[in-house]
Structure formats: structure tokens, C-alpha cells
Nucleic acid binder design. Structure first.
Lengths: 156, 156
DNA sequence: TATTGTTATACTCTATAACTATA
DNA sequence: TATAGTTATAGAGTATAACAATA
């Protein structure tokens, strides 16, 4: 194979490298994969981790409340809570004032497990954060939060 | 329904709001949905747009070369190129020096179409970019590019 | 009538393995 | 033997529609 063909040298990305959306997608994929590497032995995906955080910080909320906060459909919560319940991390308790809904709580094991995985996630975050200059992370988070607000309305 | 229950007030996101990965996921979802709104009538998803850009800027490359540049598996390119070919935007030409592979080119219609959609995407980008202060976009792109490099090796 | 949890369903995206024809 | 394109397949992730129980 000659090196003069068109198969091996780097490609021109044109507008792609200047598009926030494209950069977001690629970077988010990196974070997702790195998260999976860091937490796969614990059986927790980024999505499940989000549920754990919200249940930990907001015990007693319903599945729908957690789903709405995370921006997911409530139907997606069923399998997620099923999985977390089978792992003995979360439990559904009958809601006191509304017999249609469950109140979600971390189990005793879930509380200690949560500390473990939150530490793991903090380490994971700090590892990636080290690619930024001091103070840049806060600005990055702030910019992403502002861009996210475009999702709340149709206009810009 | 009383307002004193635990269903309606905003939730505590704990560590989640400080995690770059979580912010990336939410923001990327907003961009994806906005892109879809802007380009759904043209039948082009963000992924297909990436293929169009790379074929436009690098005519004659193979499917595998495009796939690798975009970080996708070769097998995913088959359906993508099939779709773009049915839309008369891209054509597979037999490769001159390797009868296993195809060389990808924009069709004549693809060239004019590409100008249309690139303009559409530029408008879309500028709309979201307006949520940032002047000069912030370049820094954002730069930070995302640095974070992306964590995907090229296992270390940090 | 509206809402909660649930089920069934489907659609996208993505990755893997195996096949063929070439190299 | 290795590679390009292809196919079949499977796994996430996500969304919609409809249902029973309850509000």
C-alpha cells in the first residue's frame, strides 16, 4: 500500500471543528466512555448515577419527579429503578398521601455504596479536569449551563 | 394537591451540577434537538451532516476513512451512505487502485444541497452562540478539544 | 378528567462478529 | 494474512401510546 493514496493522512474537517454541537458530541462520548471504564465494575452507568444522586439528595420523591429533573420520560425510570432495586441500592416505599406513586429512598447499603461511587466519580472528574487550566472548569460549566437554556424555549 | 408535598419544587442536584460529563450530556441533547428542528425538513441528522462535511472537503475518500475520522465503526457508514445516495447527495465510485473500496463524492445536486444545509447549520450555530459572550466560543471549543484528547489514550 | 406507574413498542445510535471479495 | 464493504444482530438509550389504579 502506497502512502500516496487517500486513505491514511488526516482529513479536513471544515466547519465541523468550529461547531459547538459537534465538539460537544465528541467530548461527551469521551466522558461517557471514561465514566464506563471507571464505574463498570460497580454496574452503574452515567444515567443510573444521575438517579442515585437525585434520590440521595432528595429522598422521598416520586419516580416522575426524578425523571422530570433528569429530563427523561417517566417510562424510562421503571427499568432504572428496577435495576437499582435489584442491586439493593434504592427502594420503593408506598407514598403516604398518594397511593398511585412510590417514594424513592436509598437503602442502607445504597447509602454506603453511594459514598463509594461518588468518590470514584470525583476522582474520574478530577482526572479529566486536569486537562483544563485552573479556573477554566467553572467557566466551562457556566457556559454549558447558559447553552442549555436554549432547550427551555423555542427561541434563542 | 397541596404544594407542601414533595412533587413540585425544584430538586437538589448535588454533585451533578458540578460534573462536566453531566453538563455535556444535557447540553449536547439541547444542541441535538435544536439541530433536528432546524434541519428535519432537509432529512439530515447531525450524524449525516458530519458525513456530508467530510465528503465535501475530502472527495474521493473511502467509507472507512470517513468513519474513522468521525469516530464511528465502518459498519455504521453503510446505512448512512445508502441514505445519502438515495437522496442523490453522495455517490459511490469504484476506487481506481483498490477494487475492494469505494471513493465517495458529492453529486452535483449534493454540492448545491450542501451549501444550503451548511448555511442552515451556520445560522443554527450563531443562534446558540448568541448565548455566549464575545470570544467565549473560541475558548469553549478549545476546552472541549483538550478534554477530547483524553479519549486518545487511557491515562489522564 | 388528570396523573402515577407500568407495559408494549419502536426508533435511533452504536458496537461486534462473520461473510465476500479483494489485497 | 489482512483489509473494505456488507450483513445480521444485539445492546443501550429514548420516546410514544395505552392501560389500571388512583386522584
Amino acid at each position: 500500500m502506497a502512502t500516496s493514496d487517500l486513505s491514511s493522512d488526516s482529513l479536513d474537517f471544515g466547519i465541523l471543528h468550529d461547531l459547538i454541537g459537534y465538539r460537544l458530541r465528541r467530548t461527551q462520548l469521551v466522558f461517557f466512555n471514561r465514566f464506563a471504564e471507571a464505574c463498570t465494575d460497580l454496574g452503574i452507568s452515567p444515567g443510573l448515577f444521575g438517579v442515585l444522586v437525585l434520590v440521595s439528595r432528595n429522598p422521598g420523591r416520586t419516580q416522575t419527579a426524578i425523571a422530570q429533573a433528569l429530563g427523561n420520560d417517566r417510562s424510562a425510570m421503571v427499568a432504572a429503578v428496577d435495576k437499582l432495586e435489584k442491586m439493593d441500592l434504592v427502594e420503593r416505599r408506598p407514598s403516604l398521601n398518594d397511593r398511585r406513586s412510590y417514594a424513592l429512598y436509598l437503602t442502607e447499603h445504597g447509602e454506603t455504596f453511594y459514598q463509594t461511587i461518588e468518590n470514584r466519580v470525583r476522582e474520574h472528574e478530577q482526572g479529566l479536569e486536569s486537562l483544563l487550566e485552573p479556573g477554566e472548569k467553572d467557566l466551562l460549566i457556566d457556559m454549558l449551563a447558559r447553552l442549555c437554556q436554549a432547550g427551555r424555549n423555542g427561541g434563542v
